[in-house]
Design a protein around this nucleic acid. Structure first.
Lengths: 95, 95
DNA sequence: CCCTGCCGCTTCGGAAATCGAATCATCTCA
DNA sequence: TGAGATGATTCGATTTCCGAAGCGGCAGGG
């Protein structure tokens, strides 16, 4: 249940999601995340570092740990579902 | 990506998760969700009703739609991962 | 050396989300 | 009628988030 708490915070899911592409620097990561607030990004990264989902390389770039890659794997069904969700809303939700 | 936005809100993941057990009334649901704020629960339910993940039965109890059950299915890998996560933190994180 | 530019990161004031307790209207049962 | 439960709403206080400015460090060029 701690997972639902960790990922219930505003950018954590997104940060892990964006980190899939490999090591990314702070400013790059911020841009990938829709230019989210740098203060919040730092806070989220601290949480993810603490949760051992992310590590910081010697060159200061952030990257997923094995654990973090596991999250990404576990997130893929959700991504697949979101497609079904989008098409379901598109079909009968005439807004 | 809209999914990451919807589920990036504070209790949405948890509410869907708790709704898996079947139709639940407002107050019961609130208790299951760690006695979250009733105002926020109402807000989240409105969002989930709007997203067609949840419907309200004639007796006013809330329950998942097919779409909502799909989310729960998509969430199960994440739940399985969280076990691995917990044991990984338990092994080398001596706190 | 000094200037410019990029980097990770921090600070801070205002805005927005969340909390939590009180409250309302309704329904049921005695 | 009166007590108790329900779904739902309101509102002030607290927490979180935002976003822009700025810090120190580290290159490269003049």
């Amino acid at each position: 249940m701690a997972a639902l708490d960790l990922f219930g915070r505003r950018w954590n899911l997104r940060v892990v999601w964006e980190l899939q592409h490999g090591p990314v620097g702070f400013r790059d990561l911020r841009q990938r995340c829709d230019n989210m607030s740098s203060s919040v990004l730092r806070q989220r990264l601290t949480e993810l570092l603490d949760a051992q989902l992310v590590v910081q390389q010697p060159d200061a770039a952030y990257t997923l740990t094995d654990l973090g890659r596991g999250v990404y794997q576990a997130l893929r069904p959700l991504a697949r579902w979101s497609d079904a969700w989008a098409s379901a809303l598109g079909k009968d939700g005439k807004d």
